[in-house]
């Protein structure tokens, strides 16, 4: 069913120099299995078109994926002209995107 990703996923994002990180987690093993298959680098770029050079890491023990969006913030928070120069709300942007979520996870 079409629902915002944040219906079942939490997220937290922030800055490290010119890179942003975006952690996404879910709250059951079934949901993690789905998330891990669904949220590829390609899918993330589709949902957040600003993302260019992305690394993706799996943390099954936390039912989480961590993405590093390289270069999103230019030369860092003090220099960046990006709206939200510390990428604090990047995760909430992602949670607001509407995606196809299996009904049994809702």
């Amino acid at each position: 069913m079409k629902r915002p990703l944040g219906t079942i996923a939490g997220a937290r994002s922030g800055d490290k120099g010119g890179d942003a990180n975006l952690g996404v987690w879910v709250r059951s093993d079934e949901a993690y299995e789905w998330l891990n298959g669904f949220l590829t680098v390609e899918k993330l770029k589709e949902l957040l078109p600003e993302a260019q050079d992305v690394s993706r890491y799996e943390l099954p023990n936390l039912r989480a994926l961590n993405f590093v969006l390289h270069g999103l913030l230019g030369d860092g928070v003090a220099s960046s002209t990006r709206f939200d120069p510390q990428a604090k709300a990047l995760g909430e942007w992602l949670r607001g995107r509407v995606v196809e979520i299996p009904e049994e996870l809702l």
């Binding site: 922030g14 490290k16 690394s55 890491y57 936390l62 989480a64």
Partner: peptide, 13 residues
């Protein structure tokens, strides 16, 4: 969940 959220803050690999 609140602890997971903070563990994911400003990390990389």
């Amino acid at each position: 969940d609140t602890v997971t959220a903070q563990l994911l803050y400003e990390i990389g690999a």
